[in-house]
Nucleic acid binder design. Structure first.
Lengths: 167, 167
DNA sequence: AATATATCCTAGTGAGCAGGTCGGATTAAG
DNA sequence: CTTAATCCGACCTGCTCACTAGGATATATT
């Protein structure tokens, strides 16, 4: 499992998509409502939204008190999925040796340097995919687009709906 | 850290690259030699090579006894990095809901289905990158090619050489 | 002013897994 | 028959994930 999106990333993206869908509402959206709509724990969402609020620049803005809640800090078109995922999951790095950034690292070992070339390519592929999509793209994505998702692979189909229980 | 290559994947790929470099040798290459060349634990490499040997089809072939060791089961050009990584790290899936394969899954929740579209795109980007490279590409990759790796991002540069200690 | 409804903050915790180590059994070459 | 290698399974240890708990603070409504 080379690609590991933790529940932070999974739930956090869902939270942001929810906020994007309610972006043009007159009132902020409360975590209680989001937790109910997405069937997630309120207390846990509070931790995630903290990351989104304290990021630089912030991705959401809060209003405290009754009838408070959260809004996107910018319109959905201007928030890339790359920003969101980096805030929630940390930098896109397959390993400590391949953090995003330059790779002019001298390595004493024979083959490990050559493999870095591989991991850098994978990292850049992920980064480019995430950076080329915005929240608006996801909200606009309706069912037929989801069907069009490329499926070059044979079915494995041990897919479940409930998260987190099994790995 | 959305991309998590464990040491299984990291060391295992290095092992395969080492075998590729010695593919045209007359004698099989022992794990002891590889462990020394790559500064890895022999006992741990034994676990990894087991995966590569027992995969279907096998990626390496062993010769037991003195002067024994391992060879690639096929020439380096015919072994893709995607095959290797899948054997070592398991299927390329960002989460349990997005295993490689078709994504015609009905999901009761509102936004989680839309986010699946995102994860599927990321997954396919990784899969395509890995499947389009072979062991021969990596062995042939010399230093100037490594320099050419795309670097669209600002340096973060808390890069270390020693693996596994910190996260 | 009182209450209800929110956000905010910190700590703790239980299970599971990554990342190995260890000891020994088997096989074959010299 | 010794040496060098592959094989095999059990065990262990620390870390991180995925929460939960309990409260403090802020504000709109009544």
């Amino acid at each position: 499992m080379i690609l590991r999106v933790s529940t932070k990333g999974e739930y956090g993206v869902r939270l942001m998509v929810d906020l994007a869908r309610h972006y043009y509402s007159s009132r902020p959206r409360s975590l209680t409502d989001i937790a109910q709509a997405e069937q997630l724990s309120l207390a846990y969402l509070e931790q995630l939204v903290k990351l989104l609020r304290e990021s630089e620049p912030p991705l959401v803005i809060s209003t405290r008190g009754a009838h408070g809640g959260y809004r996107l800090s910018r319109p959905p078109e201007e928030i890339t999925m790359g920003e969101i995922v980096r805030v929630l999951e940390g930098p896109i790095a397959p390993m400590i040796c391949a953090t995003e950034g330059e790779m002019t690292q001298i390595c004493s070992l024979l083959d490990s340097c050559k493999t870095k070339f591989l991991w850098a390519r994978v990292r850049d592929a992920v980064a480019q995919t995430l950076d080329s999509m915005t929240l608006a793209d996801l909200v606009g994505a309706s069912e037929q687009e989801t069907q069009n998702a490329p499926t070059h692979f044979i079915s494995i189909s041990d897919i479940r709906v409930a998260p987190s229980s099994a790995l």
